[in-house]
Design a protein around this nucleic acid. Structure first.
Lengths: 235, 235
DNA sequence: CGTAACCTTGATTAAGATCAATTCTCGTGG
DNA sequence: CCACGAGAATTGATCTTAATCAAGGTTACG
């Protein structure tokens, strides 16, 4: 794999050429179609991944089949790294499992597997990577805290409004007719599962926000017609 | 502060005597009464803490006053470390704030403040600490993932049953009359806010579990009368 | 142009929040 | 040692939100 691609992964951004070569030797490219499972939460842990192309969801399923999406992972972001660092080498002795399920959300999703044990050996000799991992984890913790806050402290309307706003803050897209908008890269079903609700409720909520003149939903594009009011709604 | 006490904090457990001395120089002991605020989420970030004695809650408040508790922190556990590592030194340039509120839950709660900037300087020269931080963060991430799973995938009854079970797994207390039990160290109000519900609903749920013969609530002690059924309920 | 996946809409139901009123518990001062 | 009062916990009645159930409608794609 091209080194310049590897360096786009935050964890590896501090590595030198030699280290990247060693890293290359312990990776494996995997391709998936939409809906394919990358791993189940019942599988033994072998290593972590990053997304090269496409989109991946990390999710849990309750006994009665309800799904909740913990993360949506896009290109050059890693997933399933946490178990590796939880107890260091002991992971591979004690039959650790993946902590959640993972599924490709698009056709031609490409992910790269980094073998866990070999990666631990690698970074043992390159301690400057460590702070990158700390920093990456800190960001992840911040994100999860925010997610919990949204789920427990806000109703669905506020969560949807908040999602549109943060999405737009991240992408900053403007439509040809000069309105700020976001382009959903996941299905509304998945968005609902991420926002802690269900399709039907999400649909009704979009409609409500439309009727109140804040947004306009056109397929996967959501145009923001009244930013101020939307911000107030997200409170 | 006594070095053997410092070493009980996971982050510091790998430090040698010299490093602990340096650490000691950048700490400050603070004492609080029940209900005292340790920090608000509006305050500029100065460093992180560990609990020496007592109990601390980390919580968020929504605009309409609803509270959700993210963590309950007991002796020798750290809190508010995440912002320090999120963007390294830039924290202190950019007027960072604490990400949540923090309150002492008991009289005579003692916490130790470790100055953020000084701590970063300290560990720069002691890289072996880094993997401890990674591992500590990984555990925290696991905990938060579990918390989200509980909140989104389970109803209040399951969450309460699950809480009793994990509490008991951690403490393994057995009453004089040979029943497994747990002793709540927080108010039922706080427990409700941690489980994503409110006092009244928690009270009713305890009652329901009692009527079905699974538990017996006596003040702050909860006795487990039917472990098997309780496990089934938590599903 | 037909089929499957996706999305919307309506009617109903259920879980849990809110509001309101007691009751319980425990520390404090008389 | 008892009585008081404040905070904590319980209980009941009602209301609200969002899930569930059910039926159509749309869209995308072979």
């Amino acid at each position: 794999m091209d080194k310049s691609l590897l360096k786009k992964v935050y964890f590896f951004s501090g590595m030198n050429d030699d280290e990247l070569d060693k890293l290359n030797a312990i990776t494996r490219l995997k391709k998936f179609k939409k809906g394919d499972i990358i791993f189940f939460d019942t599988e033994p842990y072998i290593g972590f991944y990053f997304v090269l192309n496409g989109m991946v969801k990390i999710y849990k399923i309750s006994k009665d089949g309800k799904e909740h999406i913990l993360h949506i992972i896009g290109p050059f972001n890693t997933f399933a790294e946490v178990p590796l660092f939880e107890n260091f080498g002991s992971i591979f002795e004690s039959e650790f499992r993946y902590p959640a399920n993972s599924m490709a959300l698009e056709d031609d999703t490409e992910v790269v597997l980094i073998q866990g044990r070999a990666f631990l050996n690698l970074i043992e000799t390159t301690p400057n990577i460590c702070m990158k991992i700390v920093s990456g984890f800190a960001k992840r913790l911040r994100h999860l805290n925010h997610h919990i806050e949204e789920l427990t402290l806000k109703d669905v309307t506020k969560r949807v409004a908040g999602f549109i706003l943060t999405s737009h803050t991240n992408t900053k897209k403007i439509s040809p007719d000069n309105r700020p908008f976001i382009a959903l890269n996941i299905s509304k079903n998945d968005l609902a599962a991420y926002l802690g609700t269900i399709q039907e409720t999400l649909s009704r909520t979009f409609r409500k926000l439309e009727e109140e003149g804040m947004i306009e939903v056109e397929g996967k594009n959501i145009y923001i017609n009244n930013l101020k009011k939307l911000k107030e709604t997200a409170s």
